[in-house]
């Protein structure tokens, strides 16, 4: 497994070298971190004589890499550790390895081509022979559940969930459209994709836009896609939001949510906003969990087996 990991890293580096994408490194210990209420971060204290300062272990290198892009780096990639508090399970290790890359001038579909090219080098050929499915989120959602992902109707969502024996759905999700989508995606859509080697699900509902740009023709849809391999989520890609005001507004909403729900409050990254104001080139980017990718490439049943020392033994 150690050798397979080393080979995976070498293949990825060759892939990007051939495409003239620059490898970069950015800090792991940062002054700010993502405000996404669904991501719990690790905070640590930096001491310098009598003063001390909170530093966050990054949940992803996204903000720092966007600052490089705004500074004119051109297309870049990074392989680094990311840290997410409380995420531990068959497919999660609180400390994990991310591959994140940005392609300047690419739209979402061109980046999806890039992803398929890379995965075809990393996953064994038999996986790819059965084909790659590209499908719009709304279409997949309708095919599996018969429901409309863009139009929230609690009673029809509930009726479907109850018919599937998912009796907790209504109590857990209530009137929260985004949470319903998370619930049904993980409980129904992902299992439905288990037989499909690679599935690229694109055009997420705008309530789940994250850091993606909204579709110019249909603002109910975000230019976000997920790579799903055999029903397991491997990564999230975006046509990146370049509008500083819109980004600042999303940060505000997330921080307000954190305050209202008793979650740790963190300052938003003013340097990222400044970089967006200076001008982020049109680009698309994606982050892929490499441990999970290694897990799929080696047909392992848990992420632990891909790690030299999993969290419990770290």
């Amino acid at each position: 497994m150690l050798r397979q990991r080393a080979r995976l890293l070498a293949t990825i580096r060759r892939f990007f070298l051939e495409r003239d994408v620059l490898e970069v490194e950015t800090p792991l210990l940062c002054q700010t971190t993502g405000t996404d209420p669904q991501l719990a971060f690790f905070a640590s204290q930096y001491h310098d004589g009598s003063s001390s300062q909170t530093r966050y272990l990054q949940t992803s290198p996204e903000f720092a890499m966007k600052r490089l892009l705004a500074a004119g780096s051109g297309s870049i990639y990074q392989i680094c550790k990311a840290f997410r508090n409380g995420e531990n399970g068959q497919y999660h290790n609180p400390e994990f390895t991310l591959l994140e890359w940005y392609r300047v001038g690419f739209d979402m579909h061109e980046l999806m081509d890039d992803v398929v090219d890379l995965l075809s080098l990393l996953l064994d050929g038999s996986i790819l022979q059965t084909g790659v499915e590209r499908i719009a989120y709304r279409e997949l959602f309708e095919r599996v559940t018969g429901l409309d992902a863009l139009v929230f109707c609690r009673s029809s969502y509930r009726t479907y969930a109850n018919a599937q024996g998912l009796v907790d759905a209504d109590r857990l999700c209530g009137d929260d459209h985004a949470r319903w989508l998370d619930f049904l995606f993980s409980h129904c859509l992902q299992p439905a994709m288990a037989g499909q080697p690679i599935c690229l699900v694109h055009g997420f509902p705008a309530v789940q836009s994250s850091l993606a740009r909204l579709d110019a023709d249909d603002p109910r849809i975000a230019q976000r896609f997920e790579v799903i391999v055999h029903g397991i989520e491997l990564g999230n890609g975006f046509c990146e939001l370049t509008d500083a005001d819109e980004q600042a507004a999303r940060f505000e909403r997330e921080m307000a949510y954190r305050r209202n729900h008793g979650l740790p409050v963190v300052n938003s990254d003013s340097r990222l906003i400044a970089a967006l104001r200076a001008g982020l080139p049109n680009c698309s980017g994606i982050a892929i969990g490499l441990d999970r990718l290694l897990m799929l490439a080696t047909h392992s049943s848990s992420i632990e087996s891909t790690l030299a020392f999993p969290f419990q033994r770290a």
Binding site: Q38, E87, N88, S186, E233, N236
Partner: peptide, 8 residues
């Protein structure tokens, strides 16, 4: 443990 990269 079920956790999407972005989401609940």
């Amino acid at each position: 443990f079920v956790k999407p990269g972005k989401g609940q």
